[in-house]
Design a protein around this nucleic acid. Structure first.
Lengths: 133, 133
DNA sequence: GCGATGCTTGACGTAAACGTCAACCTGCCA
DNA sequence: TGGCAGGTTGACGTTTACGTCAAGCATCGC
């Protein structure tokens, strides 16, 4: 029943990133895996953090922002003021996500019109072709 | 009824970016404003492009991706093959946006749990305070 | 005429996020 | 015991997206 562990290349393979990237995230304070001698040993929790990083990157978060999110994940050693600032940060992130939702909706609408114009232009070229024939 | 124009600092002020950034976007092929002598003269359409760039950046698009989106916006000089690839690209972007939606939803859920833990930890410190008193 | 304002083009600097070696350790297997 | 597979730490290179001067042109008000 010992909890599972991963080597760095295990995670790299599974999450489709390079080992260099994983080490870099650690260097930036987003991960702190155990060690067996020199070797890094990753826990399921590290894996969760990595997935969170990748999700964050997909929606344009910087590594610093991702680190904040990871830190928000456990309010250990939190005195009252720290907990309050954490709640503030959470609220800020929430607003950011709302804005991103709006941006994505808008982008979709623009893709709609772009697609319409494209298909119309395409139909036009086909008609012209038929005329030439 | 002459259509409106803007100077570079007009747009910079209004969209809250630097003139340097605007010139950089032009350098990267995302804009191509008119000129009056040396001076750049921006049209409402340029402004739309700029807004699209800013939207794109908010959801993590690179400038190259933003340029593609802008190019998708007018299918001029489109031969059949180009129009087909444009439609393909539009579909790809759409998928990307869908994925981002999912990522944002997931992030929101994580913020929910983080917030819950925070508030609970906060309540705990308050209780402890009362006990001390 | 002239100084302030606003525009221009370089050219170099910089932060973020890794990529790409190099050189080295280490356990294991033929 | 030699070598290979997989791990480690530097250190330097690279791309993206601008920031930050510097030096120069134009024009407008006094």
């Amino acid at each position: 029943m010992s909890s599972q562990t991963y080597s760095i290349s295990d995670l790299a393979r599974e999450l489709d990133i390079t080992t260099r990237a994983i080490r870099f995230y650690e260097e930036q304070g987003l991960l702190s895996p155990e060690r067996r001698g020199q070797e890094r040993i990753y826990s399921p929790r590290d894996k969760v953090s990595l997935k969170l990083i990748l999700r964050g990157k997909r929606i344009g978060f910087s590594l610093a922002e991702c680190r904040e999110l990871i830190e928000l994940y456990d309010p250990t050693g939190g005195n009252q003021i720290q907990l309050q600032t954490m709640l503030t940060k959470i609220a800020e992130r929430r607003e950011q996500l709302e804005q991103q939702m709006l941006d994505i909706e808008q982008m979709k609408l623009e893709l709609d019109t772009a697609q319409e114009r494209c298909t119309q232009a395409l139909e036009q070229t086909i008609k012209n072709q038929q005329t030439v024939q």
